[in-house]
Design a protein around this nucleic acid. Structure first.
Length: 451
RNA sequence: UCCACGGUAGCUCAACGGUUAGAGCACCUGGCUGUUAACCAGGGGGCUGUGGGUUCGAAUCCCACCCGUGGAGCCA
């Protein structure tokens, strides 16, 4: 693809093909430094970053003066000759001949120096312009593109689930509540899965992609109150198929990002060899095997006693894994690991029991290496009407709200499976950033709703 | 929600209960033909989060509140 027919202008991304030519660019001054008669302006136009060089004898006095007076983040129209030069960051620079200031910015708060987290989050609307944030958002876009490309080309139909819902998908987690006209309370969706299951009975293979909400008062570098999830759901898939699909999808995402975002990953200082290694097959183990591994490694469980004191105990079979256990498991692996067949007691009501052991459900989680944590949670779904009804009652869920969901087991019920992949956690793992708040344009967290 | 830590210049941080609360960066002025977080010289910049208390004297000690950070639990 070349330059489009739109009345857009040449972009920094096009510079390698325009060496020696006169071009006009529109964008912003990211930073500047001057050496008397020679000035260097770091310039960005959205497509990337490049250096502008303004040398006094080569430009009219008013152009040199404009370059001298331009401030950080002022918007400009600039024209000049494209040059390839090893000394230029990125390899290309513009030898400026004309410079016109569109708007002179005053007192831009974010400098190229160090800033604290709080300050940067207060200025998220401006922070997005910084090279690192720019790179992360491009990787995020590539991750979503890879997901859609992979699923669309493998027979999955995108079906969008509602965001306003009448009841919980999983009774355990907290929901954001709001008033819905005369119908009482509505809730922001915490998962599109139940709707994906209905759609899978219509289309066979489907996926939902969109924001989900959890009103958990969790405060860690892995949590947002609003995050995006892709949830594939496929009729006739059993747990094995589900795990295969999860592996294929994650391999595709990582290799796609490597192919399309190498520059961004380098900007982020990511070790590319660690990502190149992400090829099938990944690792798999049962929950029971994982518990044995944890016990062998001597990782204890931090437990709170009724009187408020805390104690450290050997990890017992039947407990769900916390962050310390997941980290201990993933110390052993350089590729993602799927853990499957969890105790039914710690998992959601809709998961199918393991026919070989009724204490277990056919669930699976995928953990990413290098501190990536849990990026996928999925299962084969309960497809028997009576069994599902019993689970709903055991969990104390409002039966009426799940009427339509139970219907799916009355009219041509089939085995089916699916999973949810957290977009932000995946971006966090692939980019190697330390905190999930940098993987979404405007993070929503326990103590952050603005900007 | 629980545990720990923090709030001082626009930003990042110093300052034993004791002169007029300092430094680097940013900003402004001047100098420099290759800067990569340039460098050199000069300049302006403060209700020490809020309220109360202890004291001859509080940024510093005590109490409450507000705001934030890291982690736990829960989860993707």
């Amino acid at each position: 693809m070349g330059i489009s027919r739109y009345r857009t202008y040449r972009q920094i991304a096009d510079l390698p093909q325009l060496v020696g030519q006169y071009v006009q660019l529109r964008g912003w001054i990211a930073d500047r430094t001057d050496k008397g008669r020679l000035q260097f302006l770091r310039f960005r136009d959205g497509s990337g970053f490049c250096q502008l060089v303004v040398f006094q004898p080569e430009v009219p006095a008013e152009v040199f003066e404009a370059a001298r007076s331009v401030t950080q983040e002022s918007s400009v129209i600039v024209g000049g000759i494209v040059r390839q030069d090893e000394r230029a960051p990125g390899g290309y620079e513009l030898q400026v001949r004309e410079l016109q200031i569109m708007q002179l910015a005053q007192g831009y708060p974010i400098t190229p120096k160090e800033h604290g987290v709080e300050f940067l989050l207060e200025h998220r609307h401006l922070w997005l312009r910084s090279p690192r944030q720019h790179a992360i958002m491009r990787v995020r876009a590539a991750v979503i593109r890879a997901i859609c490309e992979f699923l669309d080309s493998n027979g999955f139909i995108r079906i969008d689930a509602p965001i306003l819902t009448a009841a919980a998908c999983e009774g355990t987690t907290t929901l954001f509540e709001l008033d819905y006209f005369d119908l009482g309370k509505a809730y922001l969706s915490q998962s599109g899965q139940l709707y994906a299951e209905a759609a899978a009975m219509a289309h066979g293979r489907v996926y939902t992609l969109g924001p989900t909400f959890r009103a958990e008062r969790s405060k860690t570098r892995r949590h947002l109150t609003e995050f995006w999830m892709v949830e594939p759901e496929a009729a006739f898939f059993d747990l094995e198929d589900d795990m295969d699909l999860a592996e294929d999808l994650v391999e595709y995402i990582v290799q796609y990002v490597l192919r399309h975002c190498e520059r961004e990953l380098r900007t982020l200082g990511r070790d590319l060899s660690r990502l190149e290694r992400i090829r099938r097959p990944f690792y798999r183990m049962t929950y029971t095997e994982a518990v044995e591994l944890i016990q062998r490694k001597g990782v204890k469980l931090h437990r709170k006693l009724p009187d408020g004191r805390e104690e450290m105990v050997d990890f017992p079979w039947g407990e769900d894994f916390g962050a310390p256990q997941e980290e201990a498991i993933m110390e052993e692996f350089d590729k993602p690991c799927i853990i499957h067949r969890y105790p039914a007691a710690v998992k959601a009501f809709y998961m199918k029991r393991d026919p070989d052991n009724p204490e277990l459900v056919l669930a699976m989680d995928m953990l990413a290496p290098e501190g990536g944590g849990e990026i996928i949670g999925g299962s084969q779904r309960e497809d028997d009407y009576e069994a599902l009804l019993q689970r709903i009652r055991e969990h104390g869920l409002p039966e009426e709200a799940f009427r339509w969901y139970l219907d799916l087991r009355l009219y041509g019920s089939v085995p089916h499976s699916g999973f949810g992949l957290g977009i932000e956690r995946t971006v966090k793992w692939i980019t190697g950033v330390q905190h999930i708040r940098e993987t979404i344009p405007f993070p929503r967290m326990l103590y952050r709703l603005v900007p």
